[in-house]
Computed example of a mutant assay.
Amino acid sequence: MRIVVGITGASGSLYAYTLIRALHELGVETHVVATEMGEKVMQFECGVSMEEIKNYATVVSNKNLFANIASGSYKTNGMVIVPCSMNTLGAIANGVGDTLLSRTASVALKEKRKLVVVPRESPLTIIHINNMKLLAEAGADIMPASPGFYHRPREIWELANFMVARILDAFDLDHQLLPRWGEKV
């Protein structure tokens, strides 16, 4: 299995970091591309640099439109953008592929591969909602970063695990991040 993880400048980098580590632990080949603000927010919120991410995944520059993940002939099982800023979401929804991240998302859509977008914004404007609708109609899964509480989280990492578990489920990856509904907590 091969998955691309995009990281943008929206708050919620803990979700990306947790996902990348979980994919690594599951033995999934992972390619990471981050916007400039995505890198800055990851450092600010998590104290994690892209250099550290290289311990878990292949990191590719967002400026490198020659990267293998920019091509439909490079087979992946899809892409997750977590967190996804409204700027990036709008660019992808409107066909703008001027960065590696937005180009790779466009490739996932055109190749009918899974694209999971995890927006982290509130409140939403009608423009945001319409852009999400466009992406959903194009085949993307919209998965707002809104963790559940039925697993009775006590720590912030348990909230991150909830969202990461849902993302892994979208790719049909088995995991033990949290009990499922109806299982003993």
Rank of each mutant, 00 (worst) to 15 (best):
F44D: 12
E45D: 09
G47V: 09
G47I: 14
V48S: 02
S49C: 07
E51T: 15
E51F: 13
E51S: 15
I53G: 13
K54R: 15
K54S: 15
Y56E: 05
T58S: 05
T58W: 07
K63N: 14
N64S: 14
N64P: 01
L65Q: 11
N68C: 00
N68I: 00
I69N: 03
A70W: 03
S71A: 10
G72R: 02
S73F: 01
Y74I: 00
Y74C: 05
Y74T: 06
K75V: 13
T76H: 07
N77S: 11
G78W: 04
M79A: 13
V80L: 09
V82T: 10
V82I: 13
V82D: 00
V82P: 01
P83H: 06
P83M: 12
S85R: 02
N87S: 12
N87K: 14
N87L: 07
T88R: 12
T88W: 03
T88D: 00
G90K: 04
A91H: 02
A93Y: 02
N94H: 06
N94S: 10
G95N: 05
V96G: 00
D98V: 10
T99H: 06
L100Q: 05
L100F: 07
S102F: 09
S106M: 09
S106V: 05
V107G: 02
A108M: 09
A108I: 04
L109M: 12
K110V: 10
K110H: 04
E111K: 04
K112W: 08
K112P: 02
R113W: 08
L115V: 08
L115P: 01
V116D: 05
V116F: 11
V117E: 14
V117K: 02
V118W: 05
R120M: 13
P123I: 08
L124M: 14
I127A: 13
I127G: 11
H128R: 08
H128S: 12
I129R: 01
I129P: 00
K133F: 11
K133S: 06
L135D: 09
L135E: 11
